Simulated scan of single mutants.
Amino acid sequence: MTDLQEVRDPELPGRLLVAERDALIPLLRSRPDADFALPTAACPGWSVRDVLAHCSAALMRVVESRFEKGVFSPESNDRDIAERAEWTNAQVVDELERGMTEAGPVIAKAGGVLDRIALGEWVHAGDVRDVFGEPGAYAGAGLPDALILLARITRQKEHLPLHADLDDVDEPLRLGAAVAAGPPARYIGDAATLVRLYTGRPVNGAAYELVGAAEGELNIFG
């Protein structure tokens, strides 16, 4: 079984962001303005543009080391989106590209406390691809690094232990607390659906098996 939590690779979050930048930014630049107003299923009340503005703002806070009290709270996120209300969609995408390029080294030096931001950005990119109907919304080139971050974060949070047999990954994956009173929960299915479950995203009728845990217990952002 693969244990991906033990040794932190400080370059991994930045690598994940750059891989996602190279996939997402060209896609965004190819879409008409009307697509930025589409609602997102993963973030009720937010449009695609709102998600992107939140992502770019969060990354620029990292780049500029702006972490005032209450940062990343729902209220703070709404303010960040409102501050960009008069921007063009192209300006939002430009800021997002800069953030995805420059945040990695800052996250690397932070010792792990900011790693979760890189995973959140990757997941939000999946939210946007999902709205656009793009294949592999929560997969793609960044998936292996995203799984490593997910495993480490669930370990740090002492989350419910889970053994995952992934259809599209060679070795089983262990997530959650290292020590548990009983046997871990079990998941059988594809990796993208596992990501959806751990981040509270709709599974869209995907076929999978989950034993020993309810879907809501897996959500690390809940």
Results as ranks from 00 to 15, higher is better:
residue 197 L to G: 10
residue 118 A to V: 12
residue 133 G to E: 11
residue 24 L to F: 01
residue 214 A to N: 11
residue 42 A to D: 00
residue 103 A to K: 04
residue 69 K to W: 12
residue 196 R to I: 06
residue 61 R to H: 12
residue 115 D to I: 06
residue 121 E to V: 15
residue 106 V to P: 04
residue 80 D to K: 03
residue 45 G to M: 05
residue 182 G to K: 09
residue 87 W to V: 08
residue 61 R to N: 09
residue 212 G to V: 10
residue 141 A to G: 04
residue 28 L to M: 14
residue 217 E to R: 08
residue 72 F to S: 09
residue 78 D to R: 13
residue 29 R to S: 15
residue 221 F to N: 12
residue 203 V to K: 12
residue 32 P to K: 12
residue 78 D to K: 06
residue 197 L to D: 09
residue 112 G to E: 07
residue 75 E to N: 13
residue 57 A to L: 11
residue 170 D to N: 05
residue 68 E to I: 01
residue 11 E to A: 15
residue 98 R to N: 00
residue 85 A to K: 10
residue 94 D to H: 07
residue 105 P to V: 06
residue 161 P to D: 00
residue 175 L to R: 07
residue 107 I to F: 11
residue 65 S to D: 14
residue 12 L to M: 11
residue 13 P to K: 05
residue 6 E to Q: 13
residue 139 A to E: 04
residue 125 A to Y: 03
residue 156 Q to V: 00
residue 106 V to A: 11
residue 208 Y to N: 13
residue 29 R to K: 15
residue 172 P to C: 08
residue 143 L to T: 07
residue 96 L to K: 02
residue 54 H to T: 14
residue 103 A to F: 05
residue 101 T to W: 00
residue 121 E to G: 14
residue 159 H to S: 06
residue 7 V to R: 15
residue 219 N to I: 09
residue 140 G to N: 05
residue 73 S to E: 12
residue 50 D to C: 10
residue 176 G to K: 05
residue 215 E to Y: 03
residue 64 E to V: 03
residue 164 A to F: 01
residue 209 E to Y: 13
residue 27 L to K: 09
residue 194 L to Y: 01
residue 131 V to Q: 10
residue 174 R to S: 07
residue 28 L to N: 11
residue 148 I to E: 04
residue 92 V to K: 07
residue 115 D to F: 11
residue 151 A to P: 01
